[in-house]
Nucleic acid binder design. Sequence first.
DNA 1: GTTGACCTTACCCTAAGGGCAAGCTTTAGC
DNA 2: GCTAAAGCTTGCCCTTAGGGTAAGGTCAAC
Lengths: 136, 136
Amino acid sequence: MANLVNTLVTIGQAAKQTGLSAKMIRYYEEAGLLLKANRTDAGYRLYNNQQLQQLGFIKQARALGFSIVQISSLLGLWRDPNRSSREVKQLAELHLDEIKQKVAELQQMQSLLQQLADSCCGDDQPQCAILDGLQK
Amino acid sequence: MANLVNTLVTIGQAAKQTGLSAKMIRYYEEAGLLLKANRTDAGYRLYNNQQLQQLGFIKQARALGFSIVQISSLLGLWRDPNRSSREVKQLAELHLDEIKQKVAELQQMQSLLQQLADSCCGDDQPQCAILDGLQK
DNA sequence: GTTGACCTTACCCTAAGGGCAAGCTTTAGC
DNA sequence: GCTAAAGCTTGCCCTTAGGGTAAGGTCAAC
């Protein structure tokens, strides 16, 4: 028999199960990614399986570098049965371009800095090609 | 004849000459990278050639991705006649490692996201490999 | 003398949470 | 039943490197 009971867990359990922190989960709620969680009489947040799944989705999307705003859009499409995969792919490719640009910027920095470092003796003398390079 | 006059410029001129913004220059002063600038009687900041050179140094270092704290150390070494280029090179290589790690992280993201995007049809159908991939 | 450009400080805003404090609730042990 | 520990709540301040704006003082040109 499948487990038909929709188990409810507190935020600490949800954090453990998703690998997020409780703080992140509250933050995502406040940021509007999740609907307001149901509460116990004492005010404790409770999460069901579906909500845990959404948290997992958010975690994966964050791991791919999507911003909270972008994830909000992704979740909207995720929940929308009338979505087209074209819309999703567009979002993904926009983000992909952002990533590629950041990589290019960092590689440019890396290249310049490596050049400077390579031309610095790294000895006891004060003369330093890195400082000279920064001074130009 | 060399120009022996130590020309003084206001923050707007300094910004124009260095390519920084006035806001950045004030921020660097407040962050302790620069000594407090001299002021006119009216309270306007004044910069001499040496200070403009320091601002240029900061700009170059920022362009290479050094943080304000790191630049503070670099400036300390720059001003220290007893420095060893070894110290400078150490700082540079630490930063280089940070950059390399960020590049690696971004490339990992890029690779995963590219895979997902490639496997998404991007058509009118709701079925979407990207969303499926995020759901796991 | 007045207008426009320039300068000042001060305050709020960004992204994505981390850390801490004060206080309530639940659970476990005795 | 009592108590201590662990878990939960909200609220506040902190992070980076400045951007934006407001209210007000200053300087130069006309």
